[in-house]
Design a protein around this nucleic acid. Structure first.
Lengths: 87, 87
DNA sequence: TTTTTGTATATTAATATCTGAATATAGGAA
DNA sequence: TTCCTATATTCAGATATTAATATACAAAAA
C-alpha cells in the first residue's frame, strides 16, 4: 500500500456516493448550474453544495463564477476515466 | 439519480479505501492468501478480514476455501475496469 | 492437541450525511 | 442608494455510518 493507492482510493471514495457520482456524470454530459443539479437530484440545494465541496476538496471539480451562477467542470483525468469505464 | 447510479456508487465506495483498493489490485495481479495480504499491507489479519467482508458484501469478491486457506478472486467487471482505468 | 488460517463480535473513536437557518454574492428595479 | 430576488455557500445540530482495536470463536491440518 503506497501513496498512489491512497490517492486513488481517496478519489474513488469521493465518487462513491450516489449524489456525487450523479453530479460528476452530469457535468461530463454538459450540465452546470447548481439549481438544475438540485432539481434533477431532488435534494435541497445546500446538500448539493456540500457534495460539491467534497468533490472540489478531492480535486475532482473546479468551479468558476459566471454572474450569479457557478459553473463547475471535471478536472480530474482519473475520475473521467472511471465514469467512462462504467458507462 | 437512478438505481444504476446507486449501484455504481456503492461499488466505488467499497473500492474507496486504501486497504480495499490494494486488496483488489493485488488480487487482480494474482495474490490470494489472507496472511500474505495482511503482511503486505502491514495491518492485523482481522482488519483484512473485515475489509474482505465489505468487498464480498459489495459483490466485488468471491472466496472459496482451499484446505485451511481462503482463495479470493475479483468477480465484478466494473471493479476490474475501474482498477484497470487507474493503472 | 497444538498450530495455522480465517471469521465474527463488541467497543470505541472518528467521519459522513442530512436538515434547516443564516449568510454571502450578484444583478436588476424602484 | 436601497430593496428585492435568484443563486450559492456556510454553519450548527442531530443522526448514522465507518474503521480500528482487541477478543473470542471456527475450521483444517500436522
Amino acid at each position: 500500500m503506497n501513496a498512489g493507492h491512497r490517492q486513488k482510493a481517496e478519489m474513488l471514495k469521493a465518487l462513491g456516493h450516489p449524489i456525487r457520482y450523479c453530479i460528476v456524470e452530469g457535468l461530463l454530459a454538459g450540465e452546470q448550474n447548481v439549481v438544475t443539479m438540485a432539481e434533477c437530484l431532488r435534494v435541497p440545494q445546500p446538500t448539493v453544495s456540500q457534495h460539491l465541496q467534497v468533490l472540489r476538496a478531492a480535486g475532482i471539480l473546479e468551479g468558476r463564477r459566471e454572474g450569479n451562477e457557478m459553473h463547475y467542470s471535471v478536472v480530474n483525468d482519473g475520475a473521467k476515466k472511471v465514469v467512462a469505464a462504467l458507462k
